[in-house]
Amino acid sequence: MRERAAERHDRLLELVRARGSARVSELAAQLGVSPVTVRRDVEFLANEGRLDRVHGSVSWPGATDAPPQGGPASGPGPAPRELVIGMLAPNATYYFAEVIRGAHEAAAAAGTRLVLRISDYRPQEDAGRAAGLLAAGAEGLLIAPGWKEPDDPVEHGAWIAGLPVPTVLLERRGVPGRELDDLDRVCSDHSHGVLIAVRHLLGLGHSTPLLVARADSPTAIAVRAGYRYALDALGLKSPLPPIGSVSAEVDPAGFERAVQALRTAVLAGRATAALVHNDVDAIRIVQRLAELGVRVPDDLALVAYDDEVAALADIPLTAVAPPKHEVGRYAAELLIERLRRGPGGGPGAGAEGPRRHVDLLPRLRVRSSCGAPSETLPNTATPRS
């Protein structure tokens, strides 16, 4: 199978990065392609600022003008090179679009270049994509693995602990006591987000709210765990087990079962309030309930989780808003600080001092769907370390 240009570029960059500089003929021999192809690749990468061309050879940005054979350098060295950090995210839309934006803004403010790769929620490919970021010149990594299942951190996460550069996990947590738990990380505190939603509904006079949630992402799993934590913290017992929700597009029958289970609980008087993860599901649930004769907020007070599109619903949805932008910003700032305080040499290396686990608190944005006056409660996107 013919190698794609992007894959060849990654291999070329890795060769030059390891050696500092190399001649085009040497790269052609090692890559198994013609010198013409290498010269074309080098021109493309140099135009992107990822390589320097020096007297018929190629050098890593910021390296001296020393010939590949190791002869003495001639003249003064170049200006300090631009710091490059890499970011691996499961997607670039919905939840993670704002995380990426926050990281990019922080990198730009620090004069640092951010390189992004997307995993499309295929955790078995995460390691290869991270290797591509390193080959593209990343000296530190922001990693949000494409985990979906509860066992994914163990099955598809060990490679992260072996990365040769400073690394920060974002919106992901390692298993306590295992390798990834020793890394820097910046996360939303979803347990707190669920807790403020439950407290708000209780404060409006409702009984313990039901949970309607997916189980197909780390956020969904964290919301489910946060629900158990909130009930324990408040000394409550759920009137029914959590209702499992699914995408209406992927599993229409499963989605209908979830709606019918919630409707039955409302009509039986077992639930007057619900917390629904995520926004899209919540909007569709409200629409379907209306068709079945259950009105929000008259018959059911509802709070959504994520706050991506909740405000755009026919009945604007009260929603828990994780501090996504701030997660990206804090993570990028932490990584850049690590890189600038000392040399690399391992995940989180380059810093004198302890690793950091930073939890940022979500806020509750109150709208019409819970039957209370609109407001934001509270403005709590502040770190817990």
Rank of each mutant, 00 (worst) to 15 (best):
S374V: 05
E125W: 06
V38A: 09
P209T: 14
G49E: 03
G244L: 15
G111R: 11
A92F: 07
G235P: 10
C187H: 03
D65Y: 07
C187T: 01
E48Q: 13
P347C: 08
Y227E: 15
H190C: 11
A274K: 03
V246W: 04
A6P: 03
D298L: 14
L15V: 08
A135K: 01
R178K: 13
V223Q: 06
L134S: 08
R199Y: 14
D314E: 15
Y94F: 12
R81C: 02
R257M: 12
A311D: 11
P145V: 00
P164I: 09
A222W: 01
F96I: 11
L169M: 11
E249S: 13
A73L: 04
V58D: 00
P362N: 06
R355K: 13
E14Q: 11
P343C: 08
P218N: 09
R199C: 08
P343D: 04
S57H: 00
S74K: 12
I336S: 00
A161M: 03
A46S: 10
A73E: 13
L27S: 00
N91V: 11
P383M: 11
P378V: 14
T264I: 09
L141Q: 06
G244R: 14
E105Y: 03
L133C: 02
H192W: 14
L169D: 05
S385K: 01
E26W: 04
G353Y: 05
P316L: 13
P78I: 05
I285N: 11
T318K: 07
S34R: 07
V303C: 15
P78W: 05
D298T: 14
G132C: 04
L116Y: 06
L51T: 01
E375H: 14
G70T: 08
G177Y: 01
G344M: 09
A248D: 07
L51H: 02
H200A: 04
R384I: 02
P316A: 07
H357Y: 12
A332T: 07
